[in-house]
Design a protein around this nucleic acid. Structure first.
Lengths: 350, 350
DNA sequence: CTGAAAGCGCTTACAG
DNA sequence: CTGAAAGCGCTTACAG
């Protein structure tokens, strides 16, 4: 129970201005509909009264009466504001904050649902989800069930990152990792690499599949043979022997952190990067360096992803759901390959 | 207008369970007051009905009916999620997120008010402030007027950082910079320093004053003579000559960033740190290094500050405002001086 | 042009 | 023990 002091209401404004409460509402919302035409004099009187008071509309009442809120929910499947998650979430949150300021809305972070097994649940008995006009979903590993339910309920939302639910049309804005991966593979091939290791996590996700599919295609074309190695089940200390066994000269890592770990393992074994073995990440490498040199990988427009996601959400919120089909609700943004200093033609391990 | 699909309400649950809507509300809120004693059988029937539906209470309606929301507002006077502000805001936001999860509340970031002259305004025509149970205020430079108005309105809030408004009792949680500064001055004195430069911004704030007062006291005790230099009006290229002119052997910088800039200026002039001149910051130096060595300064418990601020706010929200006077609403947390590698006995500039 | 009335979904005295 | 009713502060048909 919050110890609220009574706040100024429209009724009080109405009394001061000598009009009805309805009129105050009309003036505030600039309603000039079919049979409403409030003379400027009246409007002015109301505005004066408001000006002199500290009136602020109660957002709860507005919401309850069916209006929108200018509040966008932000749901992250992992803690978003911890130092560890900043590498991934930082640019996205930054982009959201800027875009939110642009369109004048507040951001409601659903921090209340406790993180269980490393991931939060969107729906729980006391979710404040519906207080928001719509919701942005962020996370390396989203729950497909949540997305489907949101679609079923007709609640406006946008996922950040490509999704491929088959049972529901999920709006998303993501990065085109398939194209980036193919470009990087081509670059490696052009440098003479023929055999590669792909270091990855076991967990599946649409964007993980995108990378894998692009590698698979290259493999089948005969451009670059891949040996897949899971970092979840393989000790990286074995990496050198795996590389030697596969006759590989390059390591593709699913993301920059795996690439860093791999580089560490190679350094420990006295293997020179990139003279003997090249390393490249299939993820954003901004700010990631390996022994002072720029890690090879992608640059991805994550600020833009966030801004586009919020823009799309805004359109969903303001469009009747019947017309959502006309909207371009699934968007992949192009990134840029950054060859960096850890990818070159390499001798391999003898 | 959001395209809401109708949601399940208490009335529908009531119909299913064959009870009145009031009873549903009672069960949900576990009301077992004076003349309410709902038999377990009825409770169970209602719970069943809820279980089988997708019922979630409408937060707007609850709020309008006078309950609390489990939503805490977060107001930052500068953009909080940009890379530049992470050094300051990062640990605070991290602490807030953790504490919010602990106590089960969501965080509403007031990102909508545009930043004007580098700072946001809390009160504006469409503020969603009142949707929150209370509000945490963050920022290097808060508006005293906002704080006073919040106190006047009886709205629960806590400022992060010491405040010294004289016209209102402002609840805050901050760092005890005065003590830290004194400790650092003593350490410098013990190392033989007698003359120092204080590099600072012009802008005033309680925490800036705390530092200044501690330096002033040392100056008057004759421990360490200070020459004050504003980085806003002085080109740091002149720093070496200023130091030489003052016969100083140490530079105190208001924060780590100024310290870094000062170090850069000295390096450009070929002056050795700390052999010739020591540098120390009067702010948190976590993660700040100067040419690979640890910058001297403070370690401040910013996660704890955030957690305490939220805890205090929670107590304000749940305490009738008449009893706020009994609460310990102004708290300074102790930090720790980190001598680091840039503070030692220095020769000075000849 | 303006106001009385219904309704949004909840909670909480207040009668039965 | 349970339900009908009032009220939270707003918006929006609907009558005047």
């Amino acid at each position: 129970m919050s110890p609220k002091t009574r706040n100024v209401t429209q009724r009080e404004i109405a009394k001061i201005a000598g009009v009805s409460q309805t009129t105050v509402s009309m003036v505030l919302n600039d309603r000039d509909g079919s049979n409403v035409r409030i003379p400027e004099a009246t409007r002015e009187r109301v505005r004066q009264a408001i000006e002199q008071s500290t009136y602020v509309a109660d957002p709860a009442a507005r919401r309850l009466a069916g209006l929108d809120n200018k509040i966008i929910g932000v749901f992250t499947y992992e803690p978003a504001l911890s130092p560890e998650s900043m590498d991934f979430y930082g640019p996205l949150l930054n982009g959201l904050e800027r875009a939110a300021e642009q369109i004048g809305c507040d951001l409601l972070f659903f921090t209340s649902s406790p993180v269980e097994n490393g991931s939060r649940s969107l729906f729980h008995r006391n979710t404040r989800l519906r207080l928001a006009d719509g919701c942005i979903l962020l996370g390396q590993h989203m729950d497909g069930g949540d997305l489907t339910r949101l679609v079923d309920e007709g609640f406006p939302f946008v996922a950040v990152g490509r999704r491929d639910e088959t049972d529901a049309h999920v709006p998303y804005v993501g990065i085109d990792y398939a194209t980036l991966t193919t470009e990087l593979v081509d670059a490696a091939t052009a440098l003479g690499h023929t055999d590669a290791i792909y270091l990855h996590h076991d967990r599946e996700s649409p964007t993980a599949n995108d990378r894998r599919a692009a590698l698979q295609a290259a493999h089948e074309r005969g451009d670059l043979r891949f040996t897949h190695v899971s970092v979840d089940t393989t000790d990286l200390a074995e990496l050198p022997s795996v590389i030697a066994g596969a006759g590989a000269s390059i390591v593709f890592a699913q993301d920059a952190f795996i690439a860093e770990d791999a580089a560490g393992a190679l350094a420990s074994a006295g293997i020179a990067v990139p003279a003997q073995v090249s390393i490249t990440a299939l993820g954003d490498v901004s700010g990631h360096r390996i022994e002072g040199v720029a890690l090879s990988g992608f640059h991805t427009p994550r600020l833009q992803v966030a801004a586009d996601a919020l823009g799309l959400l805004q359109r969903l919120v303001t469009t009747p759901s019947d017309d959502w089909a006309d909207l371009d609700t699934q968007r992949l943004l192009a990134g840029r390959v950054e060859i960096g200093d850890t990818l070159t033609s390499s001798a391999g391990i003898r």
